[in-house]
Amino acid sequence: MAPAAIWLVVFFLAPLVQVVRLSFSADEFGLTAKGWSLGSYTAALGAFLPNLANSLTIGLLATTVAFLVGVPLAYGISFYGGRRRALLLFLAVAPFLTSYLVRVISWQTLLGASGPVLGPLKSLGLVGDRFVVMGTSFSVVAGLSYQLIPFVILPSYAAFQRVDRDLCAAAADLYSGRWGARGAVLGSVLGLAVGMLAVYTLSGRRLDLSPTAALALLAFAMVGALVAASVTESFLHVVLPLSVPGLTAAGVLTFIPALGDYVNAALLGNVRTQMLGNVIQTKFLTELDYAGAAALSSLLLAITLAILGLYLHRLRGTAVLDLV
């Protein structure tokens, strides 16, 4: 096993160390590190804070959307899939077997001004001629959350599969009710929170309080209340607690790639939706500002390690690899 360990140290750890070293380099626009300075960090933090904020808000919203799609799907397949479970799981992840870039291009087409969705709506006169979806924060979130769905489905399916079915049967006998009123209250609060995150992200990080936004918030709260009220108590007290470790793993493995993504923002967004990854990519590959790009990469790495640290701390005794 030694060769693999050496390989990982040379081609994975050493490069990360080199990026961090370069981020403290005093040699601006140098391709290798010279001297020590914090200059890259102060410059980067001054100019690219909005991009970092974009990464965090768009990443968080896209992760939430991917969870809202992926977890119910994984749950349905695991608990109601019967003998066809393997086939259904395969069908659910099959769309992601084609090239990542071609998938993003398909989203460009799908959301385009005269694409298969907006084209018919426009010819029916349901939306105005100048209505656009492509090139907004909405299209970035849509595209990114789509790409993230398999990262949610696979770990949460594995987590649901591990839940003991005898316990579920016993629980269904013991607590047979629905969550009801308490669920409705909590659900509406959660729905409101998701709605606020959506409005905040999609309106370019302002708390938009227009009538449309207020209506959307109300709808989010109502849907949340309805869903939570109909959740069964046996799910709440048995399935959920048992699958929390797997779902947390899914959250970590989804949010981290979301933070670093830049292809969706580059091809589906506009100048104001550019994420941290877009700046890093331009600096490394076009502007050749290695020190500045390394500072931003190190920042991303630090955020990632903080999330992982928190996750591993909560996990304590459990073996990490068992949850992947």
Binding site: F12, P15, L253, I256, S297
Partner: peptide, 12 residues
């Protein structure tokens, strides 16, 4: 490597 953003790995 699974938990590191690919962009950081690539940059490294």
């Amino acid at each position: 490597p699974l938990a590191t953003p690919e962009i950081v790995m690539g940059a490294g």
